[in-house]
Design a protein around this nucleic acid. Structure first.
Length: 747
DNA sequence: CACCGTTAAGTTTTT
DNA sequence: CTTAACGGTG
């Protein structure tokens, strides 16, 4: 047997050996799915003799693609560089660049990210005289993305299948938005996918070329694909049928982004000869954690069902930690991290998860105070900073002379006297002559005498001519092979951007200058890591690869902080799951949904969180927490109760903050979860009464209102006389009451 | 055109 | 409590 196959279990091995025909691998968390995929690809190349050129492996994140590429290259001796291991979006961008002319794009098209799409939508809406107050651009964006996710595009043949309401104003906005993109020679994220679908549907010969090339297609994280991606995969693989998809429906946490469970269910219909394999052995976590997580996820109805097991040791019990408030939750975590670290555990192997980014602050405060190094994964992105977006906009105008949006962003940044009035004049000419803004400016500058009626002031004229010349020069440099970083530096100074920031002495401008220098080194970094660096190539990397993993090179032993979404695919020895309270996790939004789908997705999220932990899992919640400036008493999450008792033990920690805490000790409360309690005791930490109270109308409690009937408490705020509760009634209506007045009875 | 004050709203975000 | 975004004023 080949050496590599020895490291695999039986199922993994059959996945690797199944080289022809469709294959669906349902792989549980920590079941070695990446190892299997990597081995499969190297087996195809090394043993079956498939040319790397003919293999296409698709992932969702650049991080995953990179990891897979790296791991393959250690296993494959032949030219792994010819392999296509990439994200869906990057793959589509590549196809569109080489076939752009077919669908009316030119190959230097710009990719718009979410904020740029939003700006275009705003423009469209304002043309209709709609303010952002009347209609949030987000709603339009959701509609547009919805169509994109389904694989719809302007000019599609089988339009009737989409059941569209053509009189819906949103449909009008959608069309105008796309016309606007087209005019700017731009494509949005979803448009990358639908653009390729468009290309393949209307030009079968082009499709044929790709079908011939990619004989073997592999897809990672298949549960997260949307309908558009599903369509694309089918077009590429229905002839050769060598398609292998790997997914886990229990880890599908992106349905709100269009991931469609039907893609798993219908795979078998599309490929009746499919072989389905399950990877159910978990190599990551202790048995306690696996069994606890399995039993939580088994409550979901919408799943195919897998039985996870592990031969790992039973391990410690999960610790459910009840804290007084979010600050003490953070203190508990900090203290535990220090303790574990003293015992010799690596802090690099520890992570703190939260449901929403906003929850990271308290944690960061405490960690900083305790001098524990940490890094926040996700958070504010480098490329979303204003100064970076400004400079990128300059570069985009260089690459794509039709990018009016980018142009209007920087035409007066730094301010050079080109205000709204001038811009409006330019736009009028643009519409009249069917040109983009940069093109219009160029024409005007070249034939000033023809545009006398625009009444442009001398200052405006000179500014415009400066811009026009600058861009012309830059384009010349670009096509004559000058390096991207030189062009960047040139524009940074010629545009006056650098000097205008330099002139300001405030701290913020200082930081911005530093960021601009960092951008410069990012471009250099790109140049040295790419074979044929180009300005356009750099811009594409920036938009499509947002993972700003700064490799500082040195291991400071940082604890990782991230949302649970950000934790997918990762593993840690010690995991702290925070804020596990009703209305937070599961989120209040998901609870408001009428169907169970929202709740089930939250449960999957909880499952993902649990299964990140290898050795030890802490599940923390706070009795009270400041939320939107108000103290909320949400009570522990229902998910905690869904873990069978034998897998965890419950402890309360916290210090007494004084009599003004708003808690009285007489009230008997939290009786539904009177588990065995263990009390921590040290100088700082005192035990909290076992009966720490909040209200008798706890979240989740069933009540009867003499007027509205039966319902359940979904939220409670304030204490004593001021206590208010929100109740969801049987008919789905939510109402808020003052406890002291409302005719409420507990059931 | 830049600044300030008011107001409203408030998940998750691989691309 | 925050943040973003709008409208009014100097």
């Amino acid at each position: 047997m080949k050496e590599v196959l020895k490291n695999l279990n039986e199922e993994q091995r059959s996945a690797v050996l199944h080289t022809t025909g469709p294959l669906m691998i349902l792989a549980g968390a920590g079941s070695g799915k990446t190892r299997t995929l990597v081995t499969k690809i190297s087996y195809l190349i090394e043993t079956v003799g498939v040319s790397p050129f003919k293999v296409l492996a698709l992932t969702f994140s650049n991080k995953a693609a990179r990891e897979m590429r790296d791991r393959i290259s250690t296993q494959v001796s032949s030219d792994a560089g010819a392999l296509s291991v990439t994200t869906f979006h990057a793959f589509c961008a590549r196809v569109l660049r080489s076939e752009a002319q077919y669908i009316g794009l030119s190959r230097n098209f710009t990719i718009y990210d979410t904020s740029e799409s939003k700006a275009v939508i705003k423009q469209v809406l304002s043309r209709h005289g709609i303010s952002t107050k009347e209609l949030s651009p987000f709603e339009v964006m959701n509609y547009n993305e919805g169509l994109n996710n389904l694989g719809y595009y302007v000019g599609i043949d089988n339009e009737e299948e989409f059941d569209l309401d053509r009189s819906d104003p949103f449909f009008t906005y959608y069309n105008e938005y796309n016309a606007e993109l087209r005019k700017s020679n731009a494509v949005d994220f979803g448009g990358l996918i639908t653009g390729v679908i468009h290309l393949f549907e209307k030009f079968p010969d082009v499709l044929k070329k790709y079908v011939e090339r990619f004989e073997y297609i592999l897809v990672d994280e298949y549960q997260d694909t949307n309908r558009a991606q599903f369509k694309l995969l089918n077009m590429l693989s229905k002839e050769k049928r060598n398609i292998c998809v790997v997914g886990d429906e229990d880890q599908s946490i992106y349905s709100w982004r269009g991931a469609d469970i039907r893609n798993i269910l219908e795979f078998e219909e599309n490929y009746p000869e499919v072989q389905v394999l399950k990877l159910e052995q978990n190599y990551r976590s202790s048995r306690n954690i696996i069994e606890a997580a399995s039993s939580v996820i088994s409550r979901n109805i919408h799943r195919k069902g897998k039985e996870m097991w592990t031969s790992n040791p039973t391990g410690d019990e999960i610790e459910v930690v009840e804290c007084f408030n979010e600050k003490e939750e953070a203190e508990f975590i900090t203290k535990t991290i220090l303790d574990l670290s003293k015992e010799g555990h690596s802090t690099r192997e520890m992570a703190v998860f939260y449901r929403t980014n906003a929850q990271s602050r308290t944690l960061e405060d405490q960690l900083r105070r305790a001098n524990i190094p940490y890094r926040v994964v996700g958070g504010v992105k480098f490329y979303e900073r204003k100064e970076i977006k400004d400079m990128l906009a300059y570069l985009r105008v260089v690459v794509n002379e039709k990018d009016s949006l980018a142009y209007s962003r920087i035409v007066n940044v730094p301010s050079r006297g080109i205000g709204a009035t001038t811009l409006r004049k330019l736009e009028t000419v643009a519409v009249r002559d069917g040109l983009s803004l940069p093109q219009v400016v160029e024409t005007i500058v070249d034939n000033l005498s023809n545009y006398k009626d625009l009444k442009l002031s001398a200052k405006v004229r000179s500014s415009l001519s400066m811009l026009s010349n600058m861009f012309m020069e830059a384009r010349l440099s670009d096509s004559s092979g000058k390096s991207p970083v030189e062009i960047y530096e040139g524009i940074l100074h010629e545009s006056g951007y650098w000097d205008s920031l330099k002139a300001r002495k405030d701290y913020e401008s200082q930081a911005r200058l530093e960021n601009l220098e960092e951008l410069s080194s990012a471009i250099k970094q790109y140049e040295s890591s790419t074979e044929k660096p180009s300005l356009g190539g750099f811009l594409e990397t920036v938009t499509l690869d947002t993972s700003n993993e700064e490799d500082t090179g040195q291991d400071l032993g940082e604890v990782s902080l991230m949302t649970i979404h950000g934790a997918k695919g990762l593993e840690f020895n010690h995991v702290f799951l925070t804020g596990v309270e009703e209305n937070i996790f599961p989120s209040i939004r998901s609870l408001e949904e009428s169907q169970d789908f929202g709740l089930e997705e939250e449960r999957r999220l909880f499952y993902v969180a649990m299964t990140r932990a290898m050795e030890k899992l802490f599940i923390c919640f706070a009795q009270g927490r400041m939320l939107y400036g108000q103290l909320k008493f949400n009570g522990p999450s229902r998910f905690i109760n869904e873990i069978p008792n034998k897998y965890y033990h419950w402890k309360k920690v916290g210090k007494i903050t004084g009599s003004s805490s708003g808690f009285s000790n007489d009230n008997n409360e939290y009786d539904d979860f009177n588990q065995e309690c263990e009390f921590e005791d040290d100088e700082k930490t005192f035990m909290v009464s076992k009966n720490a109270p909040a209200s008798k109308f706890n979240t989740g409690a069933k009540v009867i209102h003499s007027l509205y009937g039966e319902g359940s408490v979904i939220n409670s705020e304030g204490t004593g006389q001021d206590e208010k509760v929100t109740i969801k009634f049987k008919d789905g209506v939510n109402k808020k009451f003052m406890v002291k007045f409302a005719p409420l009875t507990l059931i």
